[in-house]
Simulated assay, not measured.
Amino acid sequence: MPLRRPLIAALVALGAAAALPGRAAEPGAAAMAGHRAGYKLALEKARDNSDIARAEGVMLYEVVDACDGWATRQRFQLRLTDRDGQEVETTSDYSTFETKDGRTIRFSLTQTSQGAVSQRIAGDAAVTPEGGKVTYTEPEAKQEELPKGTILPMLHTIRALAAAKTGTRMMVVPLFDGTSAEGAQDTTTIIAGWTPPQANAKFPPLASLGSARMRVAFFDRDNGGNGGGASAPDYEVGLRYYENGVADEMQMDFGEFSVNGTLQELAMLPNPC
């Protein structure tokens, strides 16, 4: 019962890189806030043909404003129980550094199953107007071309929030997040309308902020480098994002089953810049 991918889209983590001089941050980048968040994971539903009877776990996510980029880390643990009572525990430790101009990312992912390493992915990528290139160091040394229009995870979050504020309901782009050894994936993001600030007694830092719900579907690209958007998605994630980049609700759909993630703890981190 391995997880095929860790949580994507807006969840990126710790690394090191530097923005090139003269490259401006994406408009809206200043609104993204450093924070540390803890989520409880629980089974939302299992498909009729699924063997999954129970799913529970935790996810810890931290993003730090490193002035020229975002350094974040996501640690993910999920215990699955099948209908015969057998348990499988999967963990992942996912880290990246993405520069604020949205042009470079360094990434590292280690995933384990039952305590044994099942996957390692690491390397760096540079995005250009023509697409760009990924240089992998793990699981093997190789390079992959990125399709034209590729964007990186934090930039995807920023643009999705900007789209929500203007009433745009769909965003279709190739996304590279460093969780696949095969380069970029196609994504289709469906965006609900913008919600104005609402009372939030549990998490007061979010009470003064607007938010938007969105659902991101990921499609593997075929061997010819073409998008797979006409087929069923490989993976989907639904989130409610506040305008500072904090997500308090999420749903991860792995196909055979889906898991809800609920924010339990939130600490806002100071901006050192």
Rank of each mutant, 00 (worst) to 15 (best):
A162D: 10
A126G: 05
V173I: 08
P174Y: 03
G210I: 15
D93G: 03
T157M: 13
I52E: 12
F219Q: 07
L263N: 03
A116F: 11
V12W: 15
A247T: 11
I8G: 10
L43I: 09
R54L: 11
S50R: 13
D51L: 06
A267G: 06
G123E: 15
A126Q: 13
R83M: 13
V259H: 08
E56V: 01
L146K: 03
E44K: 13
G224L: 15
N271V: 02
L209Q: 07
M32Q: 15
A217P: 01
E87S: 11
A192M: 09
T179R: 02
N49A: 13
K40Y: 05
A29G: 00
M268H: 00
A141M: 02
G22V: 04
D48W: 08
D248L: 09
I158E: 09
Y241C: 11
G28M: 08
W70H: 11
P2A: 13
T104Y: 12
R120W: 03
E236N: 04
G224N: 12
Q143C: 01
F254R: 05
M171Q: 06
A18V: 15
D220G: 00
V216M: 07
V117D: 13
T110R: 13
G255K: 03
F97D: 06
L41F: 07
A184D: 12
R83D: 15
R83S: 11
T195W: 07
R5D: 12
R36A: 13
P196R: 09
D51E: 15
T96I: 15
R23F: 13
Y241G: 04
F107L: 14
R120D: 12
G193F: 14
A17F: 07
T188A: 12
A126C: 10
E98P: 02
R54W: 14
K133E: 15
E44T: 05
L175K: 00
K40V: 09
A9N: 09
S208V: 01
G245E: 11
A247W: 14
M252N: 09
K202C: 13
F97Q: 07
G38R: 01
P196A: 11
P196D: 10
V63A: 04
T187A: 08
F254L: 14
V58G: 02
V216K: 11
S108T: 10
F107H: 07
I191T: 00
G245K: 06
L175M: 09
P6W: 04
P147N: 14
W194K: 09
S180V: 03
A212L: 10
P233N: 14
S258C: 04
S50Q: 12
G245A: 11
E130P: 06
G149V: 05
A267T: 09
